[in-house]
């Protein structure tokens, strides 16, 4: 896309590769927000190196793209989000940040992907105290249930 789109413009993207018969997942990031990962009882912010799409030539983009692999245990989870969520401000101009999202992942109550999303959104709403939202807030969560049982719970979200 570099050279073919307006110079002001770029796209950020996250990629997760799930292997149905393996606890291994691979994460890559093209300038997007970090991955929040709950693994082996702890939580971490995973930020593989990667440029936004459209900022540099394919050669430079490829040379700077890092793939990060993890091995999950049953109950481990991963949370992806857009900057509209982490940068949601309250009336005191304070960002929501990563910590409340990590708190939700830490919580023993986060037993389903749906509950992770709803608890994060509840926490964001509480943080904002009615302050207007300026950007989209998109989130995705998944929990590792064991090989051949990776459930995104996408299908279980009531429409």
């Amino acid at each position: 896309m570099f050279g073919n789109i307006d110079r002001h413009t770029y796209i950020t993207l996250s990629c997760v590769i799930l292997e149905p018969n393996s606890p291994k997942i691979s994460l890559a990031r093209a300038g997007h927000m970090p991955f929040l990962v709950k693994q082996h009882g702890g939580v971490s912010v995973v930020t593989p190196r990667g440029l936004g799409i459209g900022l540099a030539s394919a050669k430079i983009f490829d040379a700077n793209l890092e793939e990060f692999s993890l091995e999950l245990s049953v109950g481990d989870s991963c949370f992806l989000f857009t900057d509209g969520l982490s940068e949601l401000q309250n009336p005191q101009s304070q960002d929501f940040g990563y910590e409340p999202m990590l708190d939700v992942l830490r919580s023993p109550a986060s037993l389903s992907a749906q509950s992770i999303i709803s608890e994060v959104m509840k926490s964001a709403d509480s943080h904002a105290q009615g302050h207007p939202q300026h950007d989209d807030m998109t989130a995705l969560a998944f929990i590792f249930k064991g090989t051949n049982k990776i459930l995104s719970e996408y299908d279980s979200i009531p429409l």
Partner: peptide
Amino acid sequence: PKVFTVFDLLGFPML
């Protein structure tokens, strides 16, 4: 630091 983080996430230190 907060401003640097925005640049850093997008990969600006590589450019």
